[in-house]
């Protein structure tokens, strides 16, 4: 299995899912939307959960995954390029989540 096979295996499912998703009905209303799906006209609100809690969860998951790799690196397979690339993607994703959420909350 070469890199093109891996790319095919990763890209094609995503394309298929995007196509299926785009076939769904979008919201045409840009104004006058209800605050909630239930139809309640309460003001839009976010209850005061501490975002730091969410960051902690993200860092916990990051630790969780890194720990997995550290625990089982004794056999030397960590040098396998795909594993390293996967780890880099996972770490980037984990860092991106809280950053993105912080931006959303600040809006």
């Amino acid at each position: 299995m070469d890199i093109i096979d891996i790319l095919i295996a990763l890209v094609i499912p995503f394309v298929i899912l995007v196509i299926i998703y785009s076939m769904g009905k979008k919201s045409k209303r840009t104004t006058g939307r209800e605050p909630y799906v239930s139809g309640h006209k309460f003001p839009v609100m976010r209850i005061p959960y501490n975002p730091a809690w969410l960051y902690y969860i993200s860092y916990f998951i990051l630790w969780d995954i890194i720990l997995l790799f550290i625990l089982f690196t004794a056999t030397g397979w960590i040098t396998y390029p795909l594993v390293i690339a996967s780890l880099a993607i996972l770490i980037a994703t984990m860092i991106a989540y809280p950053v993105r959420i912080r931006r959303v909350i600040q809006k």
Binding site: M23, K25, K26, V37, V44, R100, K107
Partner: peptide, 18 residues
């Protein structure tokens, strides 16, 4: 469900949810 209109509250990060 795919044929029902999606409604989201004001202030939702539409792109990220999608």
């Amino acid at each position: 469900l795919m044929n029902k209109e999606q409604i989201s509250p004001e202030g939702t990060d539409e792109f990220f949810v999608d």
